[in-house]
């Protein structure tokens, strides 16, 4: 059992998401940075889809009522165990009664706490991920608060042997440097003027304070739409199209761009002018408010290739950790 003493500003239980229900308007939720989440699990001997605690900007303070094996990855939040600093991207032993204090993010925005056996909250529609807008999954469908108790599942055999394992530096991202996010331009990018399509991929966009698990609102130059008589079914604003499903990662432009993330609105009538590729969504999720990002246009082949390479890299990490 993990007892939460302080919940931080937005800490939720997440796994790899509630897939397969998008058509009924249910986004997948799940870890915003799948790479950091998955590596945290590997470090404690879990499968990648075990549930972790995702902490945003500020970490949790928690005590363990039993011995445990943990790993913290993602944003650097200077974690401490009983007041002593502990490593990140590293397997750490926790003794019964220990207090873990995860502080504010200095690099990146989201950190992941994995525990051997996984956070064992009940599955809802096949996932332990929290979807706070509807209030399902995770711990009571909401962010963690003081007094919450999180059950821990049965650890895999040998998880204690992983204590002291450090992820080799070549696999540890430096979030401060990751300011380019690849996108596939479309589906309704034809609505933009030629100049605006050019601007989308050349401008420096700033992550606003309105950037959460649903979407990241960006600030930058105005993007103009082609003049047209709006078709039947589309709203009157030039940014409106006839309703369509919004891909996760899609960039809509109500005025300034919004990139939809894991708790995405699943459809609507804004033109989606591009989609952040799945391999890079986690990098955007680690960009702090007021940091900048640029979009680099790639084609679908490159996006699929990037996804495949990321899977191979995770498989490689698993074999490095398991020795």
């Amino acid at each position: 059992m993990i007892e939460i003493r302080e919940g931080g500003i937005a800490s939720t239980v997440q796994d790899l998401g509630r897939t397969g229900h998008y058509h009924i308007g249910m986004p997948p939720s799940g870890a915003m940075d799948e790479y950091a989440h998955t590596v945290a699990n590997y470090l404690v001997g879990n499968d990648g889809d075990a549930a972790t605690v995702e902490m945003t900007y500020q970490g949790i303070t928690a005590t363990f009522d039993d011995d445990a094996v943990i790993a913290i990855t993602g944003a650097d939040m200077s974690p401490e165990l009983n007041g002593d600093p502990i490593g990140t991207w590293e397997t750490v032993a926790v003794d019964a009664g220990d207090e873990l204090d995860v502080q504010f993010a200095t690099d990146g925005a989201r950190a992941y706490l994995a525990v051997a056996g996984g956070v064992d909250v009940p599955e809802v529609m096949g996932s332990r991920s929290t979807y706070t807008l509807v209030g399902i999954g995770g711990h009571e469908g909401r962010g963690l608060e003081a007094g919450d108790e999180l059950p821990i599942g049965d650890p895999a055999n040998g998880s204690a042997d992983l204590v002291g394992t450090r992820l080799p530096a070549e696999y540890v991202p430096d979030y401060a440097d990751e300011d380019t996010v690849r996108i596939v331009v479309g589906l309704t990018s034809y609505r933009l003027t030629d100049e605006a399509r050019e601007t989308l991929c050349s401008a420096e966009w700033t992550v606003s304070a309105e950037a959460d698990r649903v979407g990241y609102r960006l600030e930058g130059p105005d993007l103009e739409f082609e003049e047209r008589d709006q078709p039947f079914g589309a709203g009157t604003d030039p940014s409106n199209v006839v309703d369509l499903g919004y891909p996760i990662g899609s960039i809509q432009v109500p005025q300034q761009p919004i990139v939809l993330m894991q708790d995405a609105v699943t459809g609507g009538g804004y033109a989606t002018v591009g989609t952040v590729i799945s391999a890079d969504r986690g990098l955007l999720a680690q960009r702090q408010t007021h940091k900048t990002v640029s979009f680099e246009s790639v084609d679908v082949e490159e996006a699929i290739d990037a996804r495949r390479r990321r899977s191979e890299r995770l498989a490689e990490i698993r074999s490095v950790i398991d020795g």
């Binding site: 937005a10 945003t56 900007y57 304070a209 698990r213 408010t289």
Partner: peptide, 8 residues
Amino acid sequence: VEVMKNFH
């Protein structure tokens, strides 16, 4: 401080 529609 407001960030992500949360107030700290």
